[in-house]
Amino acid sequence: MDTRKKQTHGGARPGSGRPKGEPSKVIRLPVSLVPTVQTLLAAQDNPLGVLSPRPHAPALKLPMFGHKVRAGFPSPADDYVEAWLDLNEHLIEHKDATFFVQATGDSMTGAGIQEGNLLVVDRALEARHGDIVIAVIDGDLTVKRLEKRRGKIRLVAENPDYPPIEFKEGQELTIWGVVTSVIQRIKR
């Protein structure tokens, strides 16, 4: 039976009505301000009373079932929330070994890595042929695709303007980590 449907039409709405016993007052608001005031009211049980997004939350949990919930009242949708999605969980397999770096330059545009993109780097992974890796070249960190074929190792740019870097027998290549994701903001 679809209880959700039943709940959304008619009947008493939890959270509606004014607190009993307290006198109320009607105020006029510009329509554009209504959402702001509603958000303020919804957050009233926040002891800080301050509203601002946390810039770098350690874990961002988004409900899979995105029903708007009034704080403090049981929601009929609660029973339907099955899981929480955490972007960190999706992007990071080995927390202690994962670092973020910022891409500069245009040597990897063919692989979808643009200037300024954030790269998720997992040092716990063993670099394999075809992986995009962070390597140390002349003391600098560089991002390239790793090629291992017939005993020959190359670091290849994904841009024809840059020649591949070849490694000869006995020459040491230091792999710093394996890139697992590229994060690109498309709207500021």
Partner: peptide
């Protein structure tokens, strides 16, 4: 602060 500030992450090219 290579690991704790967004604007101080290591840069790779």
């Amino acid at each position: 602060a290579y690991t704790t500030k967004w604007d101080e992450l290591p840069r790779v090219n």
